[in-house]
Design a binder for these strands. Sequence first.
RNA 1: CGGGGAGUAGCGCAGCCCGGUUAGCGCGCAGCGUUCGGGACGCUGAGGUCGGAGGUUCAAAUCCUCUCUCCCCGACCA
Length: 587
Amino acid sequence: MRMSHLFGRTLRTAPNDVEIISHQLMLRAGMIRPLGSGLISLLPLGFRVVTKIEQIIREEMDAIGGQELLMPVVHPADIWRESGRYDQVGPEMARFKDRADRDMVLALTHEEVVTDLARQEISSYRQLPIIAYHIQTKFRDEPRSRGGLIRVREFTMKDSYSFDTDEAGLDHAYRLHWRAYDRIFRRIGLEFIVVGADVGMMGGTASHEFMAFSENGEDTILFCNQCGYAANREVATFKRDEPVDEPLLDMEDVETPNTPTIQALADLLGIPTSKTAKAVFFKGGSGRFIFAVIRGDLDVNETKLRNAIGERTLTPATVEEIKAIGAEAGYGSPVGVRDAFIVVDESVRDTPNLVAGANRPGWHLKNVNLTRDYQADLVADIATVGAGFPCPECGSPLQETRAIEVGNIFKLGTRYSEKLGATYLDANGESHAIVMGSYGIGSGRSAATVVEQRHDDKGILWPLSIAPYHVSLVELPSPDDTRPKEVAERLYQELEDLGVEVLYDDRDERPGVKFNDSDLIGIPLRIAVSARNLANDQIELKLRKSKEAIFVPIDQAVAEIARILAEIAESEAYEFVLDQEMTEPRI
RNA sequence: CGGGGAGUAGCGCAGCCCGGUUAGCGCGCAGCGUUCGGGACGCUGAGGUCGGAGGUUCAAAUCCUCUCUCCCCGACCA
């Protein structure tokens, strides 16, 4: 490609309000351009990167027996009504009517359609297992998009679906995907970790997320260096203290002016926060009032709470709602409230004689005990895990880090096949629901995440595996010497003929401009052709990520470039530990 | 949806408070000349519904009302 005609130019500065580094660099490098909120065009350079990622995905999906197909983006609403998600999913699903006044939706994902295909095409256990996938547009009308390609409303995703006769088959398909994903993310150069995750709107029985480390990540993950435990904070657990064995003391009132916070209360009474009980109030989507009780040193995890009580949504309760059940904000107590669903964290069950609110401003109750003084509708693990908490498996302190979710795998079980009637006959002629799994990778997000992890102050550092071009050929203009131009043109032709992807900077620009653009775009190998080196019949080669350049004779240039590219490919395989054993599925 | 910020040339901004020429500046863009190994310089030039609508006024980028859009922080997810 000749840069003089490349569609999309580089920007010296990024728009002021763009903050995420991958967003800035991809914008500046001329890879993406915004259209609207959460809507982004890929310019040729960006599209090449995403296409290469998708090609790697294809190779690895094909390697586990995946069959590529293509399903529509526009779906009749009826199929979403069949699965029950038409009403479950909120405003993130775009809904409209076609000219015949039929309800239609834009695909958020493709479980419904693929299950519809399965019920038409699959009838016998002899056809299973099957893995089908496609790379297709999704539209999710997110409440808030951000960060360039990290979080957009319209995006491209590889989603695959497995169909098996039983749980064991699903386990196998799940493992295959785990390994394929592991290879995919290594091949595109990401540093990542696999964590246990919440199933969210997909439903199903188990889920793992592939999390790439990044400060700009939207998720917090916890992991153990000792035993390998890793989980999204939404579902992470920790090793609980042994229940405290001490006699139950009599409950008594204590006056505690100006202590609406746990810290103020603990300071006033001179006790640790772990001897207090914290009350947190929510309104469930079903209309229930949820009264959560947790030890004062812990925080309620809304995802865990939501899953424990089977609510789809939770919103913080208003002051009026809190008063209506007989509680008092800041001095809430489960003792004596009415019309509330009381959920107690295990920590409160296992710690006797806690100080809790008295449902009166300025007063608390000492020695409050579950069962004796109030009843729980549910005792569950609803605590948020933080850095330093003991690992649930080995007790070592957990580490905490931010990460971007680039892949997600779900065991769906028969949630969709039962609803839509996708069944097969077994060897005995009996009908069963097909056991399904669902697996996704965002290709654009993956590209942006690589930029998050691989950049310096000059620009992007693409791995060769997904770089938009293999080499950037920079011709340094010379006023009274036509040779650089001639040599560059010839090199360009020879490299192209050899199948090397060349971005040829043939623009009439000064050297600094060309070098800076080459660095910004992040092409792994740079070739400079200048009168200065041509005087010695040499050209200059320089790796994007190194400081030194090497000089090679013109007549050996093409062979040397090919050799270096092969070397980079090999070193990447080493760097990405492609030859090592994959992370082992823990399922 | 809640909170915060911003819309003036492709990008970055000034002007707005205190209304008053032809709305400026840097970068970028076009032409000519000089220059040529890390974002050169000179001259000339093109490019603007001041986000939109309504209002106040002799006069609005500037004041008032409404509205749209974008960005950032929180409730959702590839």
